[in-house]
């Protein structure tokens, strides 16, 4: 099923702020076995010039993907959620995510393509802090695989 091209450019409302906690960053770093002290030791992070512990480069995906749920589950767009896989991922940082940040995400549909029966949707998430300053742009390619029976 081809998706409606008129959704390209659609921007969804900004999410409620997500407050980044030190212990959440620690939990994430430990889950990938990463012992870099910048993630767990505020003193070590400050020695590198950061105000508090920072998050690993891919941490923010957990926040942006939740925001992208507005797109994935938009009944008007009609993406087949059960068949969605992650095709590509990119992060472009202005500054690292730091413990204590209150981050909002604004998701925009950048493109919609149909390739060999698969629906391919590019979603851009703009992540801003409590001062409305840019932190990171997150690009996520979602692929809804064609149903085998079709």
């Amino acid at each position: 099923m081809a998706l409606d091209q008129s959704f390209v450019g659609r921007t969804y409302p900004a999410t409620e702020p997500y407050e980044v906690g030190r212990e959440k960053i620690r939990e994430f770093a430990e889950s990938v076995g990463d012992a870099n002290p910048a993630y767990t030791d505020p003193e070590a992070a400050r020695a590198l010039g950061h105000p508090d512990v920072i998050a690993p480069p891919t941490f923010v995906f957990a926040i942006s993907f939740r925001a992208a749920g507005l797109v994935i589950r938009d009944p008007q767009l009609g993406l087949d959620y059960d068949r969605v896989v992650h095709g590509e991922q990119k992060f472009a940082y202005t500054r690292p995510v730091v413990a204590g940040d209150r981050l909002t995400v604004t998701s925009t549909i950048e493109s919609i393509k149909s390739l060999a029966g698969n629906d391919v949707v590019m979603v851009r998430g703009e992540v801003h802090d409590a001062d409305s300053l840019h932190v990171v742009t997150v690009h996520t390619k979602l692929v809804a695989r064609a149903a085998e029976e079709a």
Partner: peptide
């Protein structure tokens, strides 16, 4: 410093 990574895809 992990913050040296400014872009990753």
């Amino acid at each position: 410093d992990p913050a040296a990574v400014i872009d990753y895809g």
